[in-house]
Amino acid sequence: MDLTVNLVSLGFEAGLGGSERGLVGLRGRWAGLTVCGCGHAAFLCRLAALLREKFPVHSSNKSHHPALKIGILGGGNIGKQLTKVLLTVPGLKPSNISISTKRPETLKEFSNRGVECYFDNCRLALWSDVLFLCVLPSHLPRVCAELHTHLPAHCLVYSFTTAVPLPRLAQLLGHSFVIRPQYIFDACDSAQLWLCHNQVTTALQDKEVLTASCPLSMCGGLSLNQMWVSAVLYSLLNMCTANGLGSIQTIQLLNELFQSNPSSETFTSLSFVNSSCASKLSTSEPFPWIILTDTQTKQTPLSSFLFGSKALQDCISAMYYNTFSGMSSEKIQMKD
């Protein structure tokens, strides 16, 4: 039991001068970005893992292990926090997570649990189904140049580094299958919400924090560009295409994934592509490859469908909550 928890005189803010107190809100924003960033990334992995479980065993791309392979490039604060959250998500096993960092010997807490830690960025990229870039902005150009010719087409790159615009990031990587969430700071006095917990995993167990971080209804001084949700759904579509699934089968699997009740609206081909493209698709033909950089900067058939369907929005929010409601107390004991 920490006897100093409620002693204001021992708090961080107690030693700040009058001119410095205005900066306290920045701590809340940083904590909020960390919690939301890790939570949203873990949610994407949960959706992708659930979808892969539905893939038929006779999928044309038999070279890939059916379990989702998650690569984390960077073993700093964000890389570590993300790994801790991923290790609490139901269905994600340590053996399906790998980290590449210059100092893998500092990640014993993860390697001891079965996460493979090494320093070989190209090896990580070639192995991963989803690759998280958790590096400093100053390191990003060098890392991108290193990965440029080693990224498989099916590998989804998810960047935590937001200092580089998305089109530029895609250009540096030579890769179009890229997601970069765009968080926006709102004028709000509730940023203190994010400072209630000193661990991201425990924060995501707090119902108030979890509700505030929900991608479709964020609050607490932060919001998320809603095109991110469309990009996540399009990334699932691309994963089906990469595995050679026909358009009808892809639609069926996505409807199975997101149907929370029989009355919910269902996906059709027109939910993802325009009528001209949909009319040319045969039932066994895969969807065309979707350029994710476009889905995050432009209105798409899917964004129109998503924001016109309250049932789908509610289903996505419920799946987000369920991603973290399955955390066990045993899994979240790792210290930050």
Rank of each mutant, 00 (worst) to 15 (best):
Q192A: 15
G308Q: 06
L136H: 14
H154G: 04
V115Y: 06
A31K: 01
Q333H: 09
P286H: 12
L107H: 14
L173N: 01
Y321E: 05
L254Y: 07
A125L: 02
R142H: 10
N61G: 04
N77T: 12
V209L: 13
R113M: 12
S325M: 12
H64L: 15
T34S: 09
A278K: 10
I332Y: 05
P286I: 12
H197Y: 14
L44D: 06
F177E: 02
L47R: 06
N322H: 15
G91P: 03
V229M: 10
N274Y: 11
P137H: 05
G76L: 08
R29D: 04
G308Y: 07
Q259D: 09
Q81W: 12
G18I: 13
S279E: 05
S230A: 14
C134P: 02
S230R: 05
V5T: 13
M1C: 10
L50H: 09
C315M: 07
P137A: 04
L224G: 00
I72G: 02
M327P: 00
F305H: 04
C45R: 09
G71S: 05
K310V: 10
V135I: 11
H175A: 04
G37V: 04
H64E: 11
E285G: 06
F307Q: 00
F12S: 04
N121I: 13
S264G: 14
G220Y: 09
T149Y: 07
T250G: 04
I316N: 00
